[in-house]
Amino acid sequence: MARLSSVAVTLALLTAVSPLAVVVMASFLNAGQYSLPPNPPSVEGYAKVLDLGIGQALLNSALVGLLAAAFSVAVALPTSYAVAKLGFTLRFFVAVLALTALTRSLPPSALLVAVYETLRGMGLLDSHLGLALAYQIYSLPMALWIMLAFAYEISPEVEAAARVDGASPVKRFFYIAVPAMRNATLAVAALTLIEVWGEYLYAAIFINAPSKYTASVLIGHLVSSEYGFDWNVISAASVMASIPPILMVGIAAQAMTKIHFGK
């Protein structure tokens, strides 16, 4: 059993890491080359992809991700605290949680028309602000989901003590809930950034100007353009787009194991 399980684990780790390793190697190929390993390694792909605007695209992804995370946190923090701690019944709490689980599960493509019409009405098509608002479809239910579970865990004793001392709900929100939910805020921000970073459907539909492309959309265009078989170019772009989310591995690994039932 022990030997079988270490074989399984080795296999799992290899499959988890090898796609990225292959793409990293491919990014150092020379133009027109396709057999690994690169001989000799070249940074031509990176030079080319910087020319094609990957820097701007990465900044765009970061901007949209941070905006989306800020919106979600600003909405989910007060709501989760109020629903969990300000005298609503458990039945109400579970109802909000169930509604959150439902909205989190809807296929984002199914809400495409509604979002498209809303953004068109507000004149926010082809803008990063509009895209960040559209991403609330993804990020807000997840933010509520994580924060409701965290708010539920805030110590009732501290809450009660502050109430006895005459602190108003708003004061308790700012001085007890916000600091207590620091980790939840961090987790929500990280997961939103990761989600937005990899998202393609909404970004491809709502953004038209090439200077506003997110990294995923730029790579999508490269893949279906004349660069589609320049493995060094599209791999270099992929490597650059993969590094920022991987930097958040610590926060994500912790948050991911808790997001299934929220409890």
């Binding site: 796609p19 990899g198 393609y200 995923s216 992929s238 490597v239 993969s242 989310p245």
Partner: peptide
Amino acid sequence: PYLVPSVT
């Protein structure tokens, strides 16, 4: 693998 963008 969950962190790496699907395009990669």
